[in-house]
Design a protein around this nucleic acid. Structure first.
Lengths: 327, 327
DNA sequence: ACAACTTACGTTACCCGTAACGATT
DNA sequence: AATCGTTACGGGTAACGTAAGTTGT
């Protein structure tokens, strides 16, 4: 009735696709690389960027012979695009239909995670996102980190934290390892021990690609001791078994190996100071903007629980089998 | 070389248009209204919303016979859409080509703004956005507010502030009015005056649709005095002229009428306490998300300056003309 | 009957991929 | 020669508007 309130006013528009194409072209420094990442032809990417430049009314890239260089206006656009893509990822993660998540997420984890709640995560993921396949990969923290770097993993659950702009670290709970020995070992009956009391015994650890190994080296160093690492084994279960057999001492999570302690196969040593707490994190590259990864991490933070026994624990009774008297 | 880093992963997508259509449908409560606002057919809007529901995997509206009701999922989507549209507005405002802003922005302003820096704003706007036409409208603050409410103005520059969720208020500087009288008036030569000294004289003000009038009524009330409003005129220049002619006293901004004081046509009265400062704001409805309005406000906040004389001041010498002895 | 949403349908326009070309190292 | 960006062309699809159909008030 007043009129004028529905006058045509337009300012040029752009699309999310254009922003995405521009952002990755800027980050990767080339249209071709961006095209490969986004599963489109390089021509399409170039056109989307050109359209975005039309929106901006000015070039966003300086087309060097071999490389793309951002113009000042392009640099500001990257910031905007980054915000937009981050918001987009949040929206997709929160609002998209569960079964629209389809594809593969490559998830790295350390063995303890695999032994406890990883199965739960896989189960929950399959339940809520039938089309989303999780490809878990168990390895040492150092290796996991390298694989994140090189892009052959999407996300890794491992001890942390990381201090890096590039990576997002989401807390996944924590555990405390304690020193364990075979009950047959003559090592401080039930009294308190000091770190140097341990020196006489070989230490069974996971290999040097384990983040824990590096973390605890620091603990030893603090005590003024050097590590005598004699036996290493990449399987935590086997480390426990070797410990039970009296081949050395080791640090193990009591939450998981409690039953073996209760059954008298392992003895928990009361060493002061205690080993430091280990905090676990889900780590992934911020720049990826992958809603599926974010969704998996969200699920992980809901189900993570190191006191839980995963289906992998089914293998434990067989470890006990050689010592029937434990029953 | 590592492989697997470029596996196809997709989660359903959506577009800005869909978000926009959904948001306005939710706010206005109907597809038809949304369609009118977005200058599209109602069919198109309904389809965009349907597509967004496909993305969400669930209905966002409950289709009542006459009204649309948001589902719980729809309510969450509105929040997301709001964020997205706000970010979109920022991007358009900051990055869009200047000449892509085309259309009409209806700008309300009070007279003092019109007399000082409004011309500058219009000039700057025309310079930077040739396709953007500003339609200024001078009126009292109360009227401006009503016209904002009813949608016949996009933005108004007026005394404030407003306290409302619905409106955005951007500061535009402030002024202080002082009491003025004709030098011929026998009113406290050069000594200090109290408010009650003014009671003997008629007060010339702008009409009751002026926000200032209401603001200063408060000042009088604080002094325990009732206002004797005898003459009102909607033109500030005429108020000044009537004051010069000795028909009464008035409050005027010394920054603008300083020359008349210096020329001896007006006398500035030293009344304590002073009239309160008046803060000006650009006010517009937050929910509009109109980048063009935001752009105009940004320009306004750059050029606002009540100490400036606009082109409208060209009319002032003619006001002086009747009193040639002032030269 | 009116006012709203839905559905159907024909047209348009846009977006993409292929392919040929040009430039640079 | 290899790699990257640009341009031109053709096909497919997705988005739009018109219009008819449906449903509640």
């Amino acid at each position: 009735m007043i009129g004028f309130s529905d006058l045509p006013r337009r300012s040029a528009m752009y699309t999310l696709k254009q922003m995405e194409a521009f952002y990755w072209s800027a980050v990767l420094g080339s249209f071709s690389a961006s095209a490969k990442k986004l599963h489109a032809s390089q021509s399409a990417i170039a056109k989307r960027v050109a359209e975005l430049e039309g929106f901006a009314g000015a070039p966003l890239f300086e087309r060097g012979a071999r490389v793309l260089t951002l113009t000042p206006r392009g640099r500001r656009m990257v910031e905007m695009a980054q915000e937009m893509l981050a918001l987009n990822a949040r929206i997709v993660q929160k609002m998209a239909a569960p079964d629209s998540f389809q594809g593969l997420v490559r998830l790295g984890a350390t063995e303890l995670v695999g032994l406890t709640w990883l199965a739960n995560l896989i189960d929950q993921t399959a339940r809520q996102h039938p089309q989303l396949q999780l490809m878990p990969d168990i390895d040492g923290g150092v290796t996991l980190y390298r694989r994140l770097e090189e892009g052959s993993l999407d996300v890794a659950i491992m001890p942390g934290p990381f201090w890096s702009y590039e990576y997002e670290s989401v807390p996944m709970g924590h555990i405390r390892n304690v020193w364990m020995a075979s009950p047959s070992l003559a090592l401080g009956g039930h009294g308190q021990l000091a770190p140097r009391d341990l020196l006489a015994y070989p230490v069974i650890t996971q290999p040097t690609n384990s983040a824990l190994t590096h973390l605890y080296d620091g603990w030893f160093a603090e005590q003024g001791l050097s590590v005598k690492r004699v036996l290493t084994c990449n399987s935590l279960g086997v480390v426990a078994q070797l410990t039970m057999l009296g081949l050395g001492i080791s640090y193990l999570p009591p939450s998981y190996f409690g039953p073996l302690v209760a059954a008298g196969h392992l003895r928990q040593l009361d060493v002061v100071p205690e080993l430091p707490q280990v905090h676990y994190y889900a780590v992934y590259k911020k720049a990826l903007f992958n809603p599926m990864v974010a969704r998996v991490v969200e699920l992980a933070s809901e189900v993570c629980d190191f006191n839980m026994r995963g289906s992998a624990m089914a293998g434990l009774p067989s470890l006990l089998a050689p010592r029937p008297e434990a029953q």
